[in-house]
Design a protein around this nucleic acid. Structure first.
Lengths: 197, 197
DNA sequence: AGCATAGCGGACCGAACGGTCCAGAACAAG
DNA sequence: CTTGTTCTGGACCGTTCGGTCCGCTATGCT
């Protein structure tokens, strides 16, 4: 007997995600959110409860998506150097699933804006970072075994370094540094990594 | 015959700077600002004109201060490895002139929050980044000449890499990653740098 | 003393904020 | 057709926002 929901929660969350990605949390007003998600204020509060809840859900969704893509990317049976180069360079290329160029990484954006004052956000951010580092470390470990990486490489440390590299890239790109300059930094890092040292 | 100004503009700006550093631009309300700067709304608008003008001034002040400190740091006649290690590690240590731990870098915080939507901010950020990169590149050039760095080192590229490293450190630290892990990343990067590769 | 300025507190402004509520239309299943 | 649910638009809430203005006092100079 009930009338079933007409809008798709996940699609609405994706739009909310894009809105927060573009303008951050505080600067995304309720009106912005409603316009992006394409639903009325009543439906919004009925379904999600609050602005903060939506951003938490969007953050979780982004994190899961990003993690799944990364896992999938490194699961491919291809040379590790190419996999890493593509994964890092990804941040500098236009991408259909990003709401704009130079919008950085949603997790990092929200981390900077909210993590110091919101324990729940901080926990999500930490979890995302650690999970990503794990995926990277695992890929690097395989690289060591296969010989594409020097045996002296320490996967967890090198994974942290790569994650730090990508974080810097995201931030500096948002600050206006030209992609070519950042690409050179990536290339240098990878060259050093595969040369061992 | 005029009565002279009682509060110090620069000190007030420093307090505004700390407020923005702690909470970002949008989340720092006028009340926050007035309380931090210790002056009345009337004096505030008489002297600075608008919230945005204050943040621009605070940003310029921060940038100049940071740049001067960095120049001074690398002007010391001490071994380059130590200078670099201290400069990078600085971001992970408590510091009297910072309003809190893990507050990141004001320029990067504002870049992420505002640069994509505010050309004036973006220009300031770019200028700061380029100036810092120049200082670093110059220090690295001296390192090459003195032999503390391999002759194959390309100072501008290595400078960008160091700046990117520091940016990542700031962001990940704000995201809750333990300082020890980030310190290890720094150590690894410097080891690779001085080993050439 | 007289005067111009600095600075203050506070009233006031319109707009926007996040959030609540409700009347009614649209719709699906019985 | 009835019933129960979804969904919408809009009225409404109190609060806060950035910003303006004014009247008062405190102060320094002549």
């Amino acid at each position: 007997m009930p009338r079933c929901r007409e809008f798709n929660i996940d699609e609405a969350l994706d739009q909310a995600l894009n809105a927060f990605w573009l303008k951050g949390y505080a600067s995304t007003s309720l009106s912005d959110l409603l316009a992006a998600m394409g639903l009325s204020k009543s439906s919004f509060y009925e379904c999600f409860g609050s602005k903060r809840a939506v951003m938490l859900a969007a953050l979780a969704r982004y994190s899961a998506r990003e993690l799944a893509e990364t896992r999938c990317h490194f699961a491919a049976a291809r040379p590790l150097p190419a996999l890493l180069a593509e994964w890092l360079g990804h941040a500098l290329l236009p991408d259909a699933c990003r709401p704009a160029e130079r919008c950085g990484c949603l997790v990092l954006n929200l981390a900077i804006e909210l993590a110091p004052h919101d324990a729940e956000i901080e926990a999500s951010v930490r979890q995302h970072i650690d999970a990503l580092a794990d995926v990277l470390a695992e890929a690097l470990r395989r690289g060591c075994e296969e010989g594409s990486l020097p045996a002296t490489t320490k996967p967890p440390l090198a994974a942290d370094a790569l994650l730090n590299l990508l974080s810097g890239i995201h931030v500096l790109a948002k600050g206006g540094v030209e992609p070519a300059r950042l690409q050179a930094v990536i290339d240098g890092h990878l060259a050093a990594l595969f040369a061992g040292r």
